[in-house]
Design a binder for these strands. Structure first.
Lengths: 200, 200
DNA sequence: GTCTATATATAGATAGAC
DNA sequence: GTCTATCTATATATAGAC
C-alpha cells in the first residue's frame, strides 16, 4: 500500500501528540513538527490553519484511541480488579509504550497534560476536555460499581468519590513518574489503588 | 512602617507565584508582571536578571512558607488523621485562600504547576523541585507511620506507596478542581484518602 | 500539497539616561 | 531603582509561486 497523500496530516497529529505529552500544548511550536517531519511550517498550516485546529485534532485522535480500545475489551470475562488493572495499563501504554519504549518516562497522558494547562487553552479544546472528563468519571465509576455488585470491592465513601480519586491519582502518578524517571512510581501508586478497593 | 525599597522585589515574587499557579512558569511573561505592578519590564530584570532567577526565587519563597507552616504546628496534640487533614487544608489554602478567595479554583499549587512543566524547566529549578519532592514524600510518610504506630491507620502496601498515592492524588485533585471550578472535588478526594487509611 | 517570503506580535534580555 | 530604547529570537499566521 502506497503512502497516501494525507499521510503527512496523520504524521503531524501523531508527532504533535507526543509533543503535547512531553512539552505541553503551549510548549511546542509548528517549527518543532517541521523539523521532525522534514517539512516547512507553512505546510503544517495548510493542514491545520491554526494551532487550535491542530490541538483539537490531537485530542480527537486521543479520544478515538480510547474508545476503540474500550470497544475491543471483553468486559464479561474480567473481574473488576482486572478491569481496573487494564485501565491503568492502558493509561501507561498509551503514553509510554505505544510510541516509544517502556522505560521512557518523559511523557504524561494527553488528557493529563492538557488538564495541567487548563487556563491557557482555547475555548473549544476546553469543551472537548470537559466532555471527556465527564465521560471518564462515569467510566471509572462503572468499573467500581461493578466490583461492589460482585462483592469484590468494599470501598469507603461514594462511588463517584472513588472514581475521582483514581483519576486524580493516575494523573499525579504520571507526573511523579516523569519527574523521577521511573515508571515504578506509577506502578506502585496504581497497585495501592486496586488493593485499597478490595474487600478485606 | 514605610514601604521598603525592596518592596517591589517582594511584590514581583508574590505575583509571579500567582502567575505560576494559574498559567505556569512558561505561561507567563515579565510583561504580565509589569502590567500588574505598574512598572516596566526592565525594572523586573533589574531585580531578577533572568526569568530563571525569578523562578528560583518563587520556589524558594514557596518552600519557606511550607517549612514555616510546619514549624508552627503542635504535632503532639494531633491525631494522625488530623495531621493529614491539616496537610490537605494547607495545600488548598496556600494556593486558594491565602492570596484570594476560597471559591477561586483557578490556581493549582506551585509545586504541582512546576512538576507539570518538568520537561520545560531550567536545570536549577528541577533540582529545587526534586529536593522538595524527596522531602515531601518523607514528610507524608512520617504522618502515616505515626498513624500506624498509634493503631489509627491500617494501610495496605508500603508506607512509601501510601505517601506517593497521597501526593499524586493531591496534585491530580487540584487539577480536576480547577477544571471543574469546584473545590468540592478536591475535598471529596482528600476525604476519601483519609477514610481509606483509617482502621475499619 | 509544499515551498519561499513575509507580516505581525511578543518573548527574554541589555545599554545607558535619569 | 526605574525608565526609554533597542536588540535578537521566535511565535502564529498568510500570500502567492510552483
Amino acid at each position: 500500500m502506497a503512502i497516501t497523500k494525507t499521510d503527512t496530516k496523520e504524521k503531524i497529529v501523531s508527532f504533535a501528540t507526543q509533543l503535547i505529552e512531553t512539552k505541553g500544548y503551549n510548549g511546542f511550536s509548528y517549527q518543532d513538527i517541521a523539523d521532525e517531519l522534514g517539512i516547512k511550517k507553512a505546510s503544517i498550516h495548510y493542514h491545520f490553519p491554526s494551532k487550535e485546529d491542530l490541538g483539537i485534532a490531537v485530542f480527537e485522535a486521543f479520544m478515538k484511541g480510547v474508545h476503540e480500545h474500550i470497544a475491543q475489551i471483553d468486559f464479561e470475562s474480567l473481574t473488576a480488579a482486572e478491569k481496573l488493572a487494564g485501565y491503568f495499563q492502558y493509561h501507561a501504554e498509551v503514553t509510554l509504550v505505544k510510541n516509544h519504549d517502556a522505560s521512557d518516562c518523559s511523557h504524561i497522558s494527553c488528557i493529563g497534560a492538557l488538564t495541567s494547562e487548563w487556563n491557557n487553552l482555547p475555548e473549544k479544546m476546553r469543551e472537548q476536555i470537559d466532555n471527556f472528563n465527564n465521560w471518564h468519571v462515569g467510566f471509572v465509576a462503572s468499573i467500581i460499581s461493578d466490583g461492589v455488585a460482585k462483592k469484590e470491592f468494599c470501598h469507603v465513601g461514594s462511588v463517584e468519590g472513588q472514581a475521582l480519586l483514581i483519576i486524580a491519582a493516575t494523573k499525579g502518578a504520571l507526573l511523579l513518574s516523569r519527574e523521577k524517571t521511573s515508571i515504578e512510581i506509577y506502578n506502585q501508586i496504581t497497585r495501592q489503588l486496586i488493593e485499597g478497593l478490595k474487600c478485606k
